[in-house]
Amino acid sequence: MLNDYPDILTVEQLAQILGIGINAAYRLVNDGTIGCRRIGKTIRIPKVCVTDYINAARFTAKR
């Protein structure tokens, strides 16, 4: 699924992966839901943080 993406992602790539808007992606990183690093004004997201977020969602989904 994420093999086509680099190990370090941008917020735009995060939005594309999750199929959400850019504002929602910024919300996820700004509130700490998805881990990230700020380098100057840029935000970089390790791909492992995205996979952790996706895997965590499997266990919290209501059936």
Score class of each variant (00 low, 15 high):
residue 59 F to T: 07
residue 56 A to R: 15
residue 27 R to P: 05
residue 20 I to M: 07
residue 20 I to V: 12
residue 46 P to W: 01
residue 10 T to Y: 05
residue 37 R to S: 06
residue 43 I to T: 12
residue 33 T to L: 04
residue 23 N to C: 11
residue 59 F to Y: 13
residue 27 R to E: 14
residue 21 G to C: 00
residue 26 Y to H: 10
residue 39 I to V: 09
residue 21 G to D: 01
residue 57 A to K: 11
residue 23 N to H: 13
residue 21 G to Y: 00
residue 11 V to H: 03
residue 49 C to W: 06
residue 53 Y to D: 09
residue 38 R to Y: 09
residue 3 N to V: 03
residue 16 Q to V: 12
residue 3 N to Q: 03
residue 63 R to K: 11
residue 61 A to G: 02
residue 14 L to K: 03
residue 43 I to M: 10
residue 53 Y to V: 06
residue 13 Q to S: 08
residue 36 C to I: 00
residue 60 T to W: 12
residue 34 I to G: 05
residue 51 T to A: 09
residue 9 L to Y: 01
residue 58 R to V: 09
residue 58 R to K: 12
residue 10 T to L: 09
residue 42 T to P: 02
residue 9 L to H: 01
residue 62 K to I: 10
residue 36 C to M: 05
residue 39 I to Q: 02
residue 1 M to C: 04
residue 48 V to G: 02
residue 1 M to N: 10
residue 20 I to K: 08
residue 48 V to T: 10
residue 39 I to N: 04
residue 25 A to H: 01
residue 58 R to N: 07
residue 61 A to L: 14
residue 40 G to Q: 04
residue 56 A to M: 15
residue 61 A to F: 10
residue 14 L to R: 01
residue 54 I to H: 09
residue 54 I to Q: 07
residue 28 L to W: 06
residue 42 T to I: 11
residue 30 N to C: 05
residue 37 R to G: 00
residue 59 F to N: 08
residue 55 N to H: 15
residue 44 R to I: 00
residue 51 T to C: 05
residue 60 T to M: 13
residue 56 A to H: 15
residue 15 A to S: 08
residue 55 N to A: 15
residue 16 Q to I: 14
residue 59 F to E: 06
residue 50 V to M: 04
residue 24 A to D: 15
residue 48 V to K: 13
residue 63 R to M: 11
residue 45 I to E: 00
residue 33 T to N: 02
residue 26 Y to K: 08
residue 7 D to I: 12
residue 36 C to H: 03
residue 10 T to F: 05
residue 20 I to D: 03
residue 14 L to S: 01
residue 51 T to D: 06
residue 40 G to L: 05
residue 2 L to V: 11
residue 20 I to R: 06
residue 46 P to E: 00
residue 49 C to M: 10
residue 31 D to K: 12
residue 57 A to R: 14
residue 13 Q to L: 07
residue 22 I to H: 14
residue 36 C to N: 04
residue 5 Y to L: 11
residue 8 I to K: 09
residue 7 D to P: 14
residue 14 L to N: 05
residue 23 N to W: 09
residue 30 N to D: 12
residue 23 N to F: 14
residue 25 A to G: 02
residue 50 V to D: 01
residue 27 R to A: 14
residue 40 G to C: 03
residue 48 V to S: 13
residue 20 I to Q: 06
residue 32 G to W: 05
residue 13 Q to C: 07
residue 55 N to K: 14
residue 21 G to H: 01
residue 22 I to T: 11
residue 12 E to W: 11
residue 3 N to I: 03
residue 40 G to Y: 05
residue 14 L to G: 02
residue 34 I to W: 12
residue 44 R to F: 00
residue 43 I to H: 08
residue 46 P to Y: 01
residue 4 D to T: 08
residue 33 T to S: 08
residue 50 V to R: 03
residue 46 P to A: 01
residue 55 N to P: 09
residue 51 T to F: 10
residue 5 Y to A: 12
residue 38 R to V: 02
residue 36 C to F: 03
residue 35 G to N: 14
residue 42 T to N: 14
residue 8 I to C: 06
residue 43 I to L: 11
residue 58 R to P: 02
residue 2 L to A: 06
residue 62 K to P: 02
residue 29 V to I: 08
residue 42 T to D: 15
